[in-house]
Design a protein around this nucleic acid. Structure first.
Length: 203
DNA sequence: CTCACGATTGGA
DNA sequence: CCAATCGTGAGC
């Protein structure tokens, strides 16, 4: 499918996040090997949001969030995992969409299949997907486009059709793992889908 | 300059 | 429930 261009991402993160579910994240290595993952879960972070890394002010870490849409914001969390975000909205408006889970088309060879209890969940979580696709801070600040080692592609017709027919549904719930802004319903995921990190609480 | 802590994960 | 593990940034 065609690559997603920066102008499509030049909207509030809360508008982009649901639209990114069903799109594809592509990882291309220097040797040409390419891996694709269906985006099955996202979260939005906006400038007025206390959970957003850029809520207080611009710092060395969150700088790319202040840049133009289509930027790639990667940070280290808990000293051992990386998380990847797609920068959205106008240049200067610090907003991003956290990619929380992927359904990989094929498993990279460095993932020990034997050790995987559930191979379809190797990228089910923001830290896990970065580990699976070898995404770290060396990719922080790159522009997400096909000339780079990482880019986005539009939804396939098959996914769009399945959503329209309610074969697949886009569920909206509250975000995960936060201490602030927990009430904002800014998480979206595909259902049914094994690769989603966690299902919404059911009442 | 220091030090508490985090948009996580996997195991007890 | 809890430890692992370290860069970041708020506050002294």
């Amino acid at each position: 499918m065609p690559a997603i261009a920066a102008d499509w991402l030049s909207r509030p993160a809360t508008a982009v996040a649901p639209d990114l579910v069903g799109c594809v994240l592509v990882r291309r290595f220097a040797d040409g090997l390419t891996y694709r993952g269906l985006i099955v879960e996202t979260e939005a972070y906006t400038p007025d949001d206390p959970a957003c890394h850029a809520y207080r002010r611009r710092t060395e870490r969150n700088g790319v969030m202040f840049g133009p849409p289509g930027g790639c914001y990667v940070y280290l969390i808990y000293g051992m995992y990386h998380c990847i975000n797609v920068v959205t909205d106008l240049d200067g408006v610090p907003s991003a969409v956290l990619i929380r889970a992927l359904q990989l088309e094929a498993l990279p060879p460095w993932i020990e299949l034997k050790q995987q209890k559930q191979p379809q969940r190797v990228a089910a979580g923001p830290g896990k997907l970065c580990r699976a696709l070898k995404i770290d801070r060396s990719l922080n600040g790159i522009q997400l486009e096909p000339s780079q080692p990482l880019w986005l592609e539009q939804r396939s017709l098959a996914i769009t059709t399945a959503l329209e027919a309610n074969k697949l549904n886009l569920i909206q719930t509250t975000r995960i793992g936060l201490t602030q802004g927990t009430e904002r319903p800014w998480r979206w995921y595909l259902d049914p889908c094994r690769a989603v990190s966690k299902k919404a609480k059911t009442r």
